[in-house]
Amino acid sequence: MRRPGFGRPGTPGWRDTQLVTVWQAASLLLGYPDEELLARRPLLRRAAASVPAAAGARLGAVLDHLDATPLRDLQADYVATFDHRRRCCLYLTYYVHGDTRKRGMALLRFKHAYRAAGLELDDGELPDHLAVVLEFAATGDLAQGRRLLLEHRAGLELLRLALTETESPWTGVLDAVSATLPPLTGRDRDAVARLVAQGPPEEEVGLAPYGTDAPASGPVLLPDPVVPGGAP
């Protein structure tokens, strides 16, 4: 993996270490809430404090919500948000391809990027889950992970807007990720407008390359975060 340096063109003022910190923290916060996540709050607090406020304050707001909400309520809200709302899907290729034949090829693009970095996913785990993509960007290959995020910027923005509209506590995670990326271009804005108007394609054909038993959503198992501050 590349050693930390300065951020890429298009992310002025961001060091690689800061990008890694935001993406790692965001990947954890987008996983299914459980006792392990709650135990990591002190570490995530230190991570949020170590990055620019544009992202750190938004991550801090999500952590405030975790502090104030019973775990059972967090879990119920997570399922209601990400499993039951079409525009709040955490699988990035869904926004471009829906459940169409083209989505299978798009998933292979993610899988090949991970394999090139020496990473292999379990057969039942789809590689375009946003938490997985952020984990890859943070700990696998920063440049390739950032490329995948930018390629699916319209879907990320639609997800952020949908969470904002519903006043979801997870909005802050998407705001933080968005803060690490370049401003939307005119082309990106057009793509977002089309998604808002039309939504993802609706052809139902399955995802043959990954089998029919892949989960629609739910817990994503991730390694311990690699962020400044040491153990919680």
Rank of each mutant, 00 (worst) to 15 (best):
K111D: 14
A117E: 08
D99S: 07
A138P: 02
P127R: 06
T81A: 02
A138W: 00
F82A: 03
D99Y: 10
L142T: 07
D123E: 15
Y95A: 07
D128C: 07
L142W: 00
L126C: 10
T93A: 03
A116Y: 03
A116M: 09
F82Q: 01
G155L: 08
R146A: 15
A106T: 09
L148E: 09
D99F: 03
L148T: 06
V133A: 03
L156S: 08
H84A: 12
D141I: 04
D122R: 15
D128N: 10
L134F: 10
R87D: 11
A143Y: 09
R115T: 15
A106I: 07
T100N: 04
L156N: 05
F110P: 02
T81D: 04
L149H: 01
F110Q: 04
V96K: 14
R86C: 03
E157G: 05
A80K: 14
L134E: 07
L74V: 05
T139Q: 14
L158K: 11
K102A: 15
R103D: 00
D99N: 08
D77S: 13
E157K: 14
L158R: 14
L148A: 03
A80D: 13
E120S: 11
H112L: 13
L74K: 02
G145Q: 05
A113I: 06
L158E: 10
A76W: 05
Y95S: 06
G98E: 02
M105K: 15
R153A: 01
G124P: 05
A143F: 09
L142D: 02
L90Q: 12
A116W: 04
